[in-house]
């Protein structure tokens, strides 16, 4: 279960950079290690954490920002399953995947593969705030940029801000599903400020570069298919 594998390509999805890619934790990435926590309080919604997580799993793709697609496993979000992601990073298309590492009634965790923007995992959970009994939905990312290109983008290209907006949108959509409109609170902690130069070679697997080349080569593939003799 350490490499991604999809049995069948979802219709309409670009599935390069998925099959055979090894998943990578934050210790294997290149850039600074960050833990980012996004929370939204579901004030006024009469829902318990189990209901929130169930809805989050069932409607996960619908809560994403526009122009970002999550092609979830047909069997739903379950441990060991692979999902395909077609997302937009700084205006560029990116095809990648994620592995469902954990999934239970209270939380689920997705882990990223080689070539993804970051090496690490994201945990989606819900809990009751003990101070006032309000149910809270939370997304927590432990990440480090996979290679030097992504690290530059995150640090100087607005990548962190873009990622923050992504999860803020997701949490606001989840809250709206329960009829709640509340602000998202974000907390960011630098776990390790050093970069790991020995991981710089991860650049070879950069999925953004490979997706861009794949998209640019589309006319060539089209012409090749047209010229190929019918069998």
């Amino acid at each position: 279960m350490t490499t991604l594998r999809i049995a069948e390509a979802p219709e309409g999805a670009i599935t390069i950079n998925v099959n055979g890619r090894r998943i990578v934790g934050p210790l294997q990435g290149f850039g600074q290690m960050w833990q980012k926590t996004y929370r939204i309080r579901l004030v006024g919604a009469n829902v318990d954490p189990l209901t929130v997580v169930r809805a989050w799993k069932e409607h996960f793709a619908e809560f994403w920002p526009p122009r970002n697609r999550f092609y979830g496993p047909l069997t739903g979000i379950a441990p060991g399953e692979t999902a395909v992601l077609n997302i937009t990073v700084s205006g560029m298309p990116l095809s990648t995947g994620v592995l469902v590492l954990y999934a239970d009634d209270e939380s689920f965790t997705l882990m990223t593969p080689q070539g993804h923007v970051f090496a690490g995992w994201i945990t989606f959970s819900s809990f009751v705030d003990p101070s006032d009994g309000v149910t809270v939905a939370q997304a927590q990312v432990l990440m480090r940029a996979n290679d030097p290109i992504y690290e530059l983008g995150l640090r100087f290209g607005g990548g962190h801000r873009q990622e923050d907006r992504f999860w803020e949108h997701t949490l606001r959509s989840l809250a709206a599903y329960f009829g709640v409109k509340e602000p998202v609170v974000m907390e960011r902690v630098c776990v390790d400020k050093h970069v790991q130069w020995r991981e710089a070679r991860n650049i070879w697997m950069n999925s953004a570069v490979r997706t861009m080349l794949y998209v640019l080569a589309a006319p060539v593939r089209w012409l090749t298919r047209r010229r190929a003799p019918a069998r």
Binding site: M33, Y102, W121, T123, Q140, L142, V191
Partner: peptide, 18 residues
């Protein structure tokens, strides 16, 4: 151990490696 707990262990590993 949940995934936040795994993250804490990652933090210890970072401290140990430093």
């Amino acid at each position: 151990i949940n995934s936040s707990g795994i993250a804490l262990i990652v933090g210890l590993l970072v401290r140990a490696r430093k």
